[in-house]
């Protein structure tokens, strides 16, 4: 066969059609799903962490922590009920950072180059990658909710449906943060710093474990800090959605954080900035 024997792609498709973008999106989603299925340990690891918090930490705190009735709750709830949205957020947060780690790894191993040299806008390629990682996070979150339901921590059935867009939005926001970090992390070994300076402060300075009014009892400044944390709003968005209720502030902050993180990540991956130039 000669290399000139076939027409080029452009001749076949009449240019860079919209469908090219969708074909690439489907392929990236498919690849991520295959990798996810192939790495069963990843699902187990993602679930063990929040389950330990639920079965051990929350069980121990049940007696110690009294919770007032605040929206979206209409009655007294156990601490396990309270903590579940925060633990869903924990799954999404770790998944976002895991995606970031895998992007840095891919960059060092070279497969990121393959993606970035595809003839598509770079922002689209990054978005596809972000969406793929986020959808896997949603699967993990629902697996956790299913185990929690088996344990007896249940939400209204319609809440499980209403939570899907909220969980995906939160996953996209945290994935965008991971994408942003991956564009600035120079080496894989620098990733440990992310754990210390991003994951832990983000998780503990949020409403994941305690409501903000409870935090204010300890320190109003701490409460303010938590209120500024986009992770708090992601957790609240999920908490309200699990009762099929909206929380506009939480939605607005989560979306705004997604847009900001996403734009900075795209800027970080801009070829003119040369950040992808780092050699393995």
């Amino acid at each position: 066969m000669t290399v000139e024997a076939f027409p080029s792609i452009e001749e076949e498709t009449g240019g860079f059609l919209h469908s090219h973008s969708l074909v690439a999106l489907r392929a990236i989603l498919h690849r991520e799903a295959l990798r996810f299925i192939g790495q069963r340990g990843r699902l187990v690891a993602a679930l063990v962490r929040p389950l330990v918090w639920l079965f051990v930490f929350a069980a121990g705190f049940r007696a110690a922590l009294g919770l007032a009735i605040t929206p979206p709750y209409q009655t007294y709830i156990t601490y396990e009920i309270y903590i579940v949205p925060g633990l869903v957020g924990m799954i999404l947060l770790f998944n976002g950072m895991q995606s970031s780690l895998s992007l840095v790894y891919d960059r060092e191993m070279g497969s990121m180059r393959l993606l970035l040299t595809a003839p598509l806008p770079r922002w689209w390629l990054l978005f596809c990658r972000l969406l793929a990682g986020s959808l896997m996070a949603v699967v993990q979150a629902y697996a956790f909710l299913a185990i929690a339901a088996l344990y007896g921590i249940r939400f209204p059935w319609f809440g499980y449906l209403a939570a899907a867009p909220a969980i995906l939005t939160a996953a996209m926001m945290l994935g965008a943060l991971g994408l942003l970090l991956s564009s600035f992390i120079r080496r894989l070994e620098n990733f440990a710093g992310v754990m210390n300076f991003v994951i832990f402060p983000m998780f503990f300075l949020s409403s994941a474990l305690y409501p903000l009014w409870k935090m204010a009892e300890a320190s109003p400044h701490l409460r303010d800090l938590c209120a500024l944390n986009p992770f708090t709003h992601a957790v609240e968005l999920i908490r309200f959605a699990l009762y099929a209720k909206g929380n506009l502030t939480a939605l607005a902050v989560t979306l705004a954080a997604f847009v900001i993180f996403g734009l900075v990540a795209i800027w970080g991956y801009d070829p003119a900035r040369g950040l992808t130039a780092r050699k393995a």
């Binding site: 860079f16 070279g110 393959l114």
Partner: peptide, 20 residues
């Protein structure tokens, strides 16, 4: 995009996905 579409690249390090 037009330039990249007309280019094939083999990088120094393997870019095959070993899990696929």
């Amino acid at each position: 995009r037009a330039a990249l579409a007309r280019m094939g690249v083999v990088f120094q390090t393997s870019t095959l996905d070993p899990d696929l």
